[in-house]
Simulated assay, not measured.
Amino acid sequence: MTTYSATYHDAAGRFYTATIFISAVTITIRYLDENNQQKDVNWLTKDITGFQQQSIQSELQYRNNRGETERLSIRDEQLILALRRTLSHHRAFGNVQGRVLGSVWTKLSIIALIILGILLGLYLWFIPWLGERIARGFSKETEISMGEQMYQAMIGQYKVDANKTAILNEFYKELQYDVGYPVTITVVESNEMNAFAMPGGHIVVYSTILEEMKTPEELAALLGHESSHVGLRHSLRNIFRDLSRKMFLALLFGNDTGITAVVVDNANALKSLEYSRSLETEADDNGLKLMAKNNINLQGMVKLMNMLQKASGGGAETASFLSTHPVFKDRIKNIEEQIKKMPAVTTGNDKLKTIFHSIYE
């Protein structure tokens, strides 16, 4: 009979170098005790409770008739092979390889999930943050140039109302808003109620939103809000966050030119970019300051927001502006609170009123 070697650990914790004999029913463990007397311990294979295979030393566990645990520490590869071959029917050995592989796959799965979590974190948070950091590093000249390219790439899909475009640019010039950029306004024909600012100074106003306005102060508020997005570089920062994942790939293989190409190729996304609550509040507050500085009645901002909030119940088309410029009660409340802190202003520029009314002639 073939014999094997292992270290036997009895229930009391003593251990002995042992010779092992294997059959399908029993495992005989022969060793010399402290008195140099030969001892045989017989394990019934049905009472084996577990087997842990490791790269250096494996372990076989057994529960004796007193409910105590005995163990064999095994380094003999031939013994391991014999156990797996002879006791392949046993629950502890029948799928040892499967359990080992299962353990490996479990560890690999955990590692894969960790890596996936890291990549997801990079994709959702770090890369957008990186995109905004890139935007902050852009010079004003680069931003204006990129904005012009975006405008040219996008405007061809619209029908421009040349007459109202000229009137709104005259209206804006009369407002004398100074946001640090050369602002140019374009009016396009559309059933959607929308307006959006582009990096560098272009503002696109949809005809439907003009049709809903009743006073020049509302238009002054709209242009103050949108030009604030331009002056505070919200448009640039927002589109860089939104397109940062594509730009990240461009950054890996190129430079500012590659990034600009990605932005220009996605110029149409500007009309549906959503601003964060903090950016909208910042644009509202700055718009009020522009109005106050140029003697425009600040209630125009409140009227604008109330008009847009009312229009939000008019279906998908009229709600377009609301989807990208969310109006909430606390936002209107903030505007009213800011107005209370500022001196009352009455619009005294009759020319603004004349220009405004010419829009509808």
Rank of each mutant, 00 (worst) to 15 (best):
L124T: 02
S55R: 12
G201R: 05
V183C: 11
E226V: 07
G254Y: 07
T318R: 01
G156W: 07
L79R: 01
M154I: 01
K271W: 15
E189A: 07
L122C: 09
L222Y: 04
T86D: 14
V263S: 13
I118E: 00
F240Q: 06
A269C: 06
K353Q: 14
L290R: 01
S73C: 06
E226S: 09
D350Y: 06
N64P: 12
I27P: 07
E211C: 08
N268K: 12
I203Y: 14
A250V: 01
N268G: 08
H357T: 12
I80W: 13
A267F: 03
A112W: 00
I144T: 05
A311L: 11
G147Y: 06
I335A: 04
F21L: 13
V262W: 01
I22D: 12
H357P: 05
L101Q: 01
G258V: 07
G102F: 15
A166M: 11
E336F: 02
W129C: 03
T347Q: 07
S358I: 14
V205N: 14
A195D: 06
Y360F: 15
N266V: 04
S5I: 08
F328C: 03
N286C: 02
V188W: 04
I203N: 11
W105T: 05
F328W: 04
G94F: 09
I74D: 08
L210G: 02
